[in-house]
Computed example of a mutant assay.
Amino acid sequence: MNYFLVKSEPFKYSWDKFNEDGRTFWDGVRNYQARNNMKEMKEGDLVLFYHSNEGKCVVGVAKVVKEYYQDPTTEDPNWVVVDLAPVEALANPVSLAQIRAEESLADIALIKQGRLSVMKLKDTEFDKILEMSQ
């Protein structure tokens, strides 16, 4: 099992809207590192859903339900999407400030590469964020 974090601005696509939809393809990624991270996603992998810009917190857990394929919003073959489905909302959202304050998360891509929209997480990082949400 692999773990990831995806970022979305809540006014563009929120956790609530994601739950309402029940499933979505994760489009609009135009960064090669983020794209390569999506290409590593396998069906069943777990993904933290992070509200960026507004809120700045991890709000839920999703899972990969379809591995990468051509992004239907562009004809450029360089860009792909994966399908995600919501699993559960976090009991308490985990803020960027809380993540920054947690020593064991000092090397997380969310801090080191703040503009990256799709990032890999170590299992220990994923588990720590879930623990922080309790």
Rank of each mutant, 00 (worst) to 15 (best):
P77F: 10
V81M: 12
G114Q: 05
F18P: 00
Q113Y: 09
I99D: 06
V118W: 03
M119I: 01
F11M: 08
I108D: 01
L130T: 02
G55P: 00
F49I: 07
N78G: 12
V118D: 02
K42D: 14
E75T: 14
V29R: 04
E54K: 15
K128F: 08
L105F: 07
E75A: 13
L48H: 01
S104M: 04
K112S: 02
D76V: 07
C57F: 02
N2Y: 12
E54C: 07
L5A: 01
L84C: 12
F49M: 05
E20K: 14
V61C: 06
W15L: 05
V118I: 09
A85D: 10
A34T: 05
L116E: 00
R23H: 12
E20M: 10
S117T: 12
K122P: 06
I111H: 03
I111R: 07
Q98H: 11
L84Q: 11
V65P: 00
K66F: 05
L110D: 00
N19Q: 15
I129L: 15
G60T: 07
E43F: 05
Q70A: 09
P72R: 06
S95M: 11
D27P: 05
L116T: 02
F4T: 00
P93F: 09
S8I: 11
G55E: 02
L121F: 02
D107P: 01
G28D: 11
M38R: 04
Y69W: 11
L84D: 04
P72Y: 07
V58T: 11
